[in-house]
């Protein structure tokens, strides 16, 4: 087999390994299903009545935002898994095998697309039950789902980097939370940006989360898009590229100590 063929097959073997883990660790499965459901319901029914979203029902306004937020956290499994593999010596075993160097990271991030798909599907079903309705052609909806998974994939690389940078699986989880959580809130995900104080508003307008959420509203609800759709794809690809590079560099260094 060619070098490239081997790299692809190694990545698939490791992605399969990560996916097998999901049904076997039910607590992990909860974080892809119950947790997103909980967020949709809490936001829709607790905050829904208090947040004014001119032009939209709150559930319609909320769904693109909350799915984007969920996507950005889906990669925590990668951080957790890598951190564990390093600790338990599995990374040493992989590195002593005649396998592709990048497959350990690529396999994990690829598996995240699978789990993120479960989350997206779950949330859309719950959203629709809670009153969300699409207002866009099917092609746009499909494009929107592709964008969601791409954005989630980009954040898997962010988490890969975090996982390799932190001292323990627990630390990687809280580090990810501290860095990403505020970013998702200071954006157009849950409230209209115009309702924020000046400085926050200025930040929220350039926040990639805002750009991606706005793109999702355009693709799911037919909202005016401006440049946000291209911007959203560009940000996703850019984040994936930068953090893939950082993570691979870190991986090489983390294991050659």
């Amino acid at each position: 087999m060619s070098g490239f063929g081997n790299a692809v097959s190694d990545t698939l073997v490791l992605a399969q390994r990560s996916l097998k883990r999901i049904p076997r660790a039910p607590d992990l499965l909860l974080s892809f299903t119950v947790q997103p459901i909980m967020f949709v319901l809490l936001f829709a029914y607790v905050f829904g009545g208090a947040i004014a979203t001119p032009g939209y029902d709150y559930i319609d306004f909320l769904m693109p935002g909350i799915i984007v937020q969920t996507m950005s956290f889906g990669g925590f499994v990668t951080a957790l898994g890598l951190s564990e593999d390093l600790k338990k010596g599995l990374v040493d075993r992989f590195r002593s095998l005649p396998m592709s160097r990048g497959a350990v990271l690529a396999g994990r991030t690829l598996a995240d697309i699978g789990t993120n798909s479960i989350s997206v599907a779950t949330m859309i079903v719950v959203g629709v039950i809670a009153g969300f309705s699409f207002d866009a052609p099917l092609a746009h909806i499909v494009a929107g789902i592709v964008l969601l998974l791409l954005f989630g994939y980009a954040f898997s690389w962010v988490f890969a980097f975090i996982g390799l940078s932190s001292s323990s699986p627990e630390a990687s989880q809280s580090l990810g939370f501290i860095v990403i959580f505020p970013l998702t809130f200071v954006s157009s995900a849950f409230v209209p940006v115009e309702s924020m104080p000046g400085a926050l508003q200025a930040f929220a307008e350039v926040n990639p989360f805002t750009i991606v959420v706005d793109a999702m509203r355009a693709l799911f609800l037919g909202a005016p898009a401006g440049n946000s759709i291209w911007g959203a794809f560009a940000w996703s690809i850019g984040i994936a590229a930068v953090f893939a590079f950082l993570a691979v560099t870190k991986y090489k260094r983390a294991v050659v100590r």
């Binding site: 087999m1 081997n6 097959s9 190694d10 073997v13 490791l14 390994r17 097998k20 883990r21 076997r24 660790a25 338990k88 010596g89 599995l90 040493d92 075993r93 992989f94 095998l97 005649p98 396998m99």
Partner: peptide
């Protein structure tokens, strides 16, 4: 013991065999 706890014994060995191509 560098083995994956969330795989079975057989799956662990098969995975290594596949990574040896």
């Amino acid at each position: 013991a560098a083995v994956d706890e969330n795989l079975t014994g057989a799956e662990n060995l098969e995975m290594v065999g596949r990574l040896y191509h």
